Amino acid sequence: CHSECLGNCSQPDDPTKCVACRNFYLDGRCVETCPPPYYHFQDWRCVNFSFCQDLHHKCKNSRRQGCHQYVIHNNKCIPECPSGYTMNSSNLLCTPCLGPCPKVCHLLEGEKTIDSVTSAQELRGCTVINGSLIINIRGGNNLAAELEANLGLIEEISGYLKIRRSYALVSLSFFRKLRLIRGETLEIGNYSFYALDNQNLRQLWDWSKHNLTITQGKLFFHYNPKLCLSEIHKMEEVSGTKGRQERNDIALKTNGDQASCENELLKFSYIRTSFDKILLRWEPYWPPDFRDLLGFMLFYKEAPYQNVTEFDGQDACGSNSWTVVDIDPPLRSNDPKSQNHPGWLMRGLKPWTQYAIFVKTLVTFSDERRTYGAKSDIIYVQTDATNPSVPLDPISVSNSSSQIILKWKPPSDPNGNITHYLVFWERQAEDSELFELDYCLKGLKLPSRTWSPPFESEDSQKHNQSEYEDSAGECCSCPKTDSQILKELEESSFRKTFEDYLHNVVFVPRKT
């Protein structure tokens, strides 16, 4: 048989008469490798580009789960590009990614509803959504962080984005990388972005840091009482949809009607710091009717980097990364020049730590249904340095008659930039024990000054392991946590139920 035959053949030295091919099969003959313009397919066939392209389009058009959109890589027609490569849609070739590779997620039936953290986790790592997304989240724990972890990498949506009755959302900033909504599939009414009845939605994105392009379709905003109209108009300008909307697409009466839409800028007039305090004062603000001013709200939190936005980490279910302080308005003076500047002394802060701070007014709604208010920009203030805590785990070892090696770990709280350490030492008198000992005694162990690591005695271990207080009263049991108490109650309830079950099964009433 021919060298490319495997198993047997019907005619000697003829690659077209093989029972099976050793390498690849091409047009009725066995070959060692697939010549151009053919590609290896499933490690035994040679196919042309049209064959591989037909497989790709067949799966793409069917949208069946589990099928493969075949691509070409290293002269092979394979189910998908290997790690580190992405497909070129024009020629199906796998090309190296520039940075992290995109991950295209194809949605069944063309859309997916995100109504819980669990459903959001199914899209973790996706960068391109081939379909439409509907966000409908009523509640949950730590929602802002969970949504950002699972949806934060999405850069492109081919269909539309719909935010509907998501009472738990305060902001859409968890879509931190969303840059493009194509609108290839539109919501009824030709809408590519749809926001309806979101009672706590206050911000779409921080438009000073976020760009969003909507290729096709219109915007729809109705019944978002805490979303200011200025935020919607800003989205029109940034996304390129200005002029597409009709009169009733953006409701003037049901958007922002319960919001404090600040239209003035508060400026800080005085800032002073110490290692654990920050004193702030800002310019006074009074609405047209000074009785509408209820006070100020001061927001602050630790910020290692200057990239904080107002609604980071917030949701309507209680999660809030900001510390909020309510401040009463100052006494009002008739003389504008003698107006008191409101302020606040922030206490209990960490030394040498940068804080993000902003302040906003708290006002009631005027009778004319106009909203007044003022808010400052987010500023960054760093507390002063102070003395560091003591170095940890000092170790001293003498390696000769004239040297001592000293080692330690950095302090747990540096409280500033540590530039150097101060080492103090003092000579001590020799131990009298060394002169009084009889060095001729056998088995004498000389006193040693070398360091030995501390260890816990058996008594201390027994005390720590004991669940009861000892007789001397030195140790006591740790208080039980809520989960331990709940577990004990469940076990007790189970024992009672099981005992009742045994009584009912074992003891049967005697027939009379």
Rank of each mutant, 00 (worst) to 15 (best):
224 N>L: 05
120 A>N: 02
193 F>H: 01
201 L>I: 05
388 P>L: 14
138 R>C: 02
259 A>C: 14
157 I>A: 01
110 G>W: 04
206 D>H: 04
314 Q>K: 04
130 N>Y: 03
361 T>I: 05
259 A>E: 04
294 L>C: 06
386 T>M: 10
168 A>I: 04
253 K>I: 11
303 A>R: 06
211 N>P: 08
190 N>R: 09
358 F>S: 10
201 L>K: 00
300 Y>M: 14
214 I>Q: 03
213 T>D: 14
340 N>M: 03
310 E>H: 14
281 R>T: 09
103 K>T: 05
340 N>Q: 14
284 P>I: 05
407 K>W: 12
302 E>F: 03
155 E>M: 06
278 I>H: 00
235 M>V: 04
409 K>E: 15
256 G>A: 06
383 T>N: 00
221 F>S: 06
267 K>V: 13
296 F>K: 00
282 W>S: 00
209 K>I: 15
166 S>F: 06
210 H>N: 03
169 L>E: 02
116 S>G: 15
350 K>F: 08
199 Q>C: 13
105 C>R: 01
178 L>Q: 00
294 L>Q: 04
111 E>G: 15
322 W>I: 02
110 G>F: 12
122 E>G: 09
107 L>R: 05
167 Y>T: 14
157 I>W: 00
233 H>F: 05
138 R>E: 04
315 D>I: 05
267 K>H: 06
193 F>T: 02
206 D>G: 05
296 F>S: 02
308 V>R: 04
144 A>E: 14
263 N>L: 04
216 Q>K: 00
274 S>M: 14
201 L>Y: 00
154 I>C: 04
114 I>V: 11
251 A>R: 06
158 S>C: 13
370 R>M: 03
301 K>N: 13
219 L>I: 13
321 S>H: 11
287 P>I: 08
260 S>H: 05
312 D>L: 05
358 F>P: 00
298 L>E: 00
354 Q>I: 15
353 T>P: 00
405 I>A: 05
302 E>C: 08
156 E>Q: 07
409 K>C: 14
306 Q>H: 09
150 N>D: 05
103 K>D: 05
231 E>N: 02
386 T>A: 07
127 T>I: 05
365 F>L: 06
245 Q>C: 08
